[in-house]
Simulated scan of single mutants.
Amino acid sequence: MKVAIMGAGAVGCYYGGMLARAGHEVVLIARPQHVQTIEATGLRLETQSFDEQIKVSASTDPSAVQGADLVLFCVKSTDTQSAALAMKPSLAKSALVLSLQNGVENADTLRSLLEQEVAAAVVYVATEMAGPGHVRHHGRGELVIEPTSHGANLAATFAAAGVPVETSDNVRGALWAKLILNCAYNALSAITQLPYGRLVRGEGVEAVMRDVMEECFAVATAEGVKLPDDVALAIRRIAETMPGQSSSTAQDLARGKRSEIDHLNGLIVRCGDALGIPVPANRVLHALVRLIEDKQQQG
């Protein structure tokens, strides 16, 4: 299978590397610093069980999606529209575009822009870019995917590459569950620059996270979302299963980059306002992260 990774950051490089390691033809569409290193020495994929240099193609040009059977769409939610339009002229009509993104709106945005089949996936993986062309995997790696025309073949492809896949008719509920997890952890981790294990031990943090989640649950219920069972318990356990992981929002702020906060706590604020549901905890976290971002941008 020919696979293109549109937006090959930590998530895209991990899944692209795993598929390339399994023998698929993979091209990573990434930033110049990563592309230069990958072209010179390959992608370094450092996981809990192996540390290897993986031979893959790399490009800065969205047209590199040309001929791909599968496109893993991994750009930040803030870049969904621009990245989709950039790759659109080069996409094969038969390509499957799989959205591996945070947030709950991206697949619908892609469907409005592309003629190709689009499916949403929920990503449960702890990764970071440890340097140019070097992705470090801290844990997990499973995907929950909407049913697609590729069906069992897609699941088998990922499974053979060491990526567990579950197909679900309620990916919307799973995406919202992931959104609530991100709302509970990401901003707090970003503001404090602490990993999850240390974060949750802070005074008053458990109560703040509980307030955030309760607001999210209220909004999800009003939106008619069917959440999986025991979401709150699963969210609390993240700190136990990935204690050393910092949020993607924390990683963005540490690098002086704009985060996806408008599509996380910010989305809950917009939905809460539209529905008349008070969301003060989410509003404060969203405002604080935006203030930090604005300060960094202004120097």
Score class of each variant (00 low, 15 high):
His263Ile: 02
Ala119Gly: 07
Ala22His: 09
Ala250Glu: 05
Ser49Lys: 13
Pro132Phe: 12
Pro89Leu: 05
Val27Pro: 02
Leu110Asp: 06
Gly151Arg: 08
Gly266Thr: 01
Ala220Asn: 05
Gln298Asp: 13
Asp230Asn: 15
Gly151Ser: 09
Ala92Leu: 13
Ser248Trp: 01
Asp61Thr: 08
Gly162Asn: 03
Ala234Asn: 13
Ala30Pro: 02
His134Asp: 10
Val27Lys: 05
Val3Ile: 15
Gln48Ile: 10
Ser189Asp: 06
Ala86Lys: 02
Val284Asp: 11
Gln298Met: 14
Thr127Val: 15
Val56Arg: 00
Pro278Gly: 06
Gly9Thr: 02
Gly67Asp: 08
Leu110Gln: 07
Ala161Asp: 09
Gly131Tyr: 07
Gln245Asp: 08
Lys93Asn: 13
Pro195Ala: 03
Ala156His: 14
Pro195Cys: 05
Ala40Pro: 10
Asp79Glu: 14
Ala218Ser: 15
Glu142Tyr: 15
Gln296Phe: 04
Gln251Ile: 11
Pro32Lys: 08
Gly67Ile: 05
Ala95Tyr: 02
Ala68Val: 06
Ser248Gln: 07
Met18Ser: 13
Ala161Leu: 07
Gln193Pro: 03
Glu203Phe: 13
Ala287Asn: 04
Thr249Asp: 00
Pro132Asn: 14
Gly202Gln: 14
Val104Asn: 00
Asp169Met: 11
Arg210Gly: 12
Gly244Cys: 10
Ile238Trp: 09
Ala161Ser: 12
Ala126Arg: 03
Val163His: 05
Ala220Ser: 12
Thr78Asn: 14
Ala119Val: 10
Cys13Pro: 05
Ala190Leu: 02
Pro278Ser: 11
Arg172Thr: 15
Val165Ala: 01
Ile29Asn: 03
Gly131Gln: 04
Val11Cys: 02
Arg236Val: 11
Glu166Lys: 15
Leu179Gly: 00
Thr192Ile: 10
Asp229Pro: 07
Thr109His: 13
Phe217Trp: 13
Ala86His: 04
Phe217Thr: 02
Ser63Gly: 13
Val225Leu: 10
Pro62Trp: 06
Ala92Met: 12
Trp176Pro: 02
Glu260His: 00
Val284Lys: 13
Pro32His: 10
Glu203Val: 13
Leu19Trp: 03
Asn265Met: 00
Gly256Met: 03
Ala222Cys: 06
Arg237Gly: 13
Ala187Cys: 08
Gln66Thr: 13
Arg201Gly: 12
His34Asp: 12
Thr157Ser: 13
Ala130Cys: 08
Val219Glu: 03
Ala121Arg: 03
Arg31Asp: 06
Ile235Met: 09
Met1Gln: 09
Asn182Trp: 00
Gly9Phe: 03
Trp176Phe: 10
Gly9Ile: 04
Ala187Met: 03
Leu45Ser: 04
Val26Cys: 09
Leu154Met: 06
Asn182Phe: 01
Ala239Phe: 09
Ala40Met: 12
Ala190Ile: 00
Val125His: 05
Glu146Cys: 08
Cys183Ile: 00
Val163Asn: 04
Met129Tyr: 09
Leu100Cys: 05
Pro280Cys: 01
Met129Asn: 11
Gly151Ala: 12
Arg255Tyr: 11
Cys74Val: 11
Ile292Val: 14
Gly272Gln: 02
Gly256Leu: 01
Lys88Cys: 06
Leu113Gly: 05
Val71Lys: 03
Ile180Glu: 01
Pro132Asp: 15
Arg236Tyr: 12
Ser247Val: 04
Pro278Met: 07
Ser189Glu: 01
